[in-house]
């Protein structure tokens, strides 16, 4: 433990990142440039999120890391281990018990509370990037609130597919001002961004930090005659029976067999422990035997 400064980064770097975070919170949705550091992991693995988490962590914090909603995937496991080793903090898989949650591609199903911090890993912070490649121009468009182009993308979706086919990284307008990329979370999660917790977004390669303070209005963009639809797979979870959660589709055999399970593993396990059952849950007797 003493081989590392607390949470890996040196104090000056954390100070610099905290200043960027504070500015981000003061101007919700605005992308604050920061001097992103080399981290001991490749770009695209959450270098931005890790730096933001490192700047937020205190010795008394409890950290939860999820990747696509799951606590046990490679990305989540390695980042959790990283902070266990470099900060010596407590870690948890329980959403409710965590004070800092670093996430990739999901917002936990369990509503977050005041005092919690949700840190997103962001690959491309600029929502206008694929419409307008010039960064000088997109910055000007943000400054002058020229967001018509964002709707051109949604228009193209409807013209091509008959409905807004953008299903993740769905653009939102924060507090009626900045259009923001919510990182590649499914659009199902967009309505949850109106929350009590602090949301911080870190993009390491792109060197940008932005934030959504608690209780900030986050509106998903849409057309009057094609309203926003936070869609999900039309199934209940096959393990816990939940009908209101975001589901992963899992192919289970070579004959087209498939199952749908909650992508939030902690939420699903908790429901199963409470006795909720789905289509493919083992029979009750077996489960009891296994428990014994």
């Amino acid at each position: 433990m003493s081989d590392y400064n607390f949470a890996y980064l040196d104090e000056q770097t954390k100070r610099m990142i905290r200043r960027a975070i504070l500015k981000g919170i003061a101007v919700p949705g605005y992308q604050v440039p920061f001097a992103s550091r080399e981290m001991p992991m490749p770009y695209g693995w959450g270098t931005g999120g890790v730096q933001v988490s490192a700047a937020c962590l205190m010795p008394e914090d409890t950290l939860k890391v999820i990747d696509q909603g799951a606590d046990d995937t490679t990305n989540a496991v390695s980042i959790r281990k990283f902070f266990e080793k470099t900060a010596g903090i407590a870690v948890t898989e329980k959403t409710r018990a965590a004070t800092v949650i670093q996430t990739r591609h999901r917002i936990p199903e369990e509503p977050l509370a005041e005092g919690q911090i949700l840190v997103y890993q962001v690959p491309i912070p600029e929502p206008l990037r694929f419409l307008e490649p010039r960064e000088t121009e997109t910055r000007k468009m943000h400054a002058l609130e020229e967001y018509g182009l964002m709707h051109v993308k949604l228009y193209e979706d409807i013209a091509k597919h008959g409905h807004i086919a953008t299903s993740y990284a769905y653009p939102v307008k924060v507090e009626g001002r900045y259009v923001m990329d919510p990182s590649p979370i499914p659009k199902f999660d967009n309505p949850k961004m109106d929350m009590a917790a602090i949301q911080l977004f870190g993009a390491g390669r792109e060197q940008r930090i932005y934030a959504v303070p608690p209780y900030t209005k986050v509106v998903s963009l849409d057309f009057e005659d094609h309203p926003f639809d936070p869609s999900k797979a039309e199934h209940p979870c096959d393990l816990c029976g939940a009908e209101h959660t975001y589901l992963d589709e899992v192919i289970v055999d070579d004959d087209g067999g498939r199952m749908f399970v909650c992508s939030d593993t902690d939420y699903c396990a908790e429901r199963q422990a409470l006795g909720h059952r789905g289509r493919l849950s083992p029979p009750e007797t077996l489960a009891e035997e296994a428990a014994q």
């Binding site: 020229e146 018509g148 182009l149 709707h151 051109v152 228009y155 409807i158 057309f223 009057e224 005659d225 094609h226």
Partner: peptide
């Protein structure tokens, strides 16, 4: 449609 959306049109039809 881009110019229309740039000046605030938000009705696809």
């Amino acid at each position: 449609g881009e110019r229309l959306m740039a000046v605030g049109a938000r009705h696809y039809g």
